[in-house]
């Protein structure tokens, strides 16, 4: 188990594995998102209360889920990077930040578009909206901090520390804002047993969620690959790899 882990954490092995599997993630995400969009935007019936406006959940809910779980994943990678000083985990921290920030922004924008017809306002100071906004600020803080460093390793570790402090803060922010005020509608899917949503609406939503997860994984893998190449550009394995590519006619 540990030898496998160490082998995976070595940049050349990781690079080859990621190169082989990330196209499959891309295909998977395209298929799932394609089915989710068709099923959600055309096949699912309109909601009895919200009409067609409810269809925004097919983008909004996966984006909101990924924004939070992306932050937790970034913090987990940060813990690995700081405790075991694994270079690859540092690359993962830096790679997740922009992708997670994009999903957070997407969740906020789609939420605002939905809020206008439903609540009559683009923005209300509600608990979930506010904590999502703070989450975006936390992501942007990580991005800004990383950009300020010249040495990529020190920058990635500083970002990791910030992500770890931030992940402790996220639940505190969430519950403090909830205590402050809440207007957002309750969760419709997570109730175990009987979800409060019809199956014809639920399947496209789950498909969209897994599709977005695959997309997230694909984007992060590609970013990590780029970062690894850039950091190790003077090493022999990169030179060997590029030589291989040149011989095969890729470059």
């Amino acid at each position: 188990m540990w030898t496998w882990f160490h082998r995976l954490a070595s940049p050349p092995t990781f690079y080859r594995l990621a190169d082989r599997y990330s196209p499959w993630l891309a295909v998977l995400s395209l298929l799932l998102i394609g089915y989710g969009l068709v099923g959600g935007l055309w096949l699912a019936p309109p909601d009895y209360q919200q009409g067609d406006a409810f269809r925004i959940i097919y983008v909004h809910v996966p984006a909101a889920w990924l924004s939070l779980s992306g932050y937790v994943a970034m913090a987990a990678a940060a813990a690995v990077a700081i405790i075991w000083r694994i270079k690859l985990a540092e690359c993962v921290v830096v790679a997740i930040a922009p992708v997670g920030a994009s999903f957070t922004a997407l969740a906020l924008i789609t939420g605002m578009l939905w809020g206008k017809p439903m609540w009559g306002k683009y923005w209300v100071w509600d608990a979930r909206l506010t904590s999502e906004l703070v989450l975006l600020f936390l992501y942007l803080g990580v991005l800004g901090l990383n950009r300020a460093f010249e040495d990529p390793r020190a920058g990635a570790r500083a970002c990791g520390l910030l992500a770890l402090v931030g992940v402790v803060n996220v639940p505190i922010v969430h519950y403090s804002v909830e205590w402050w005020n809440s207007l957002h509608q309750g969760s419709t899917v997570s109730r175990i047993g009987k979800p409060a949503i019809a199956a014809s609406m639920l399947w496209p939503l789950l498909s969209m969620t897994f599709g977005c997860m695959a997309f997230f994984g694909w984007a992060v893998l590609r970013r990590v690959q780029n970062d690894v190449l850039l950091r190790e550009r003077r090493s022999t394995w990169v030179a060997a790899l590029l030589g291989e590519r040149k011989a095969a006619g890729h470059v």
Partner: peptide
């Protein structure tokens, strides 16, 4: 402490601190 070695720490600091201080 995170930004101590950086040339433009003063601009970065408020962006790092203020979201964490919300609660």
């Amino acid at each position: 402490a995170l930004t101590v070695g950086l040339p433009r720490a003063a601009v970065l600091l408020p962006v790092l601190v203020l979201p964490l201080i919300g609660p």
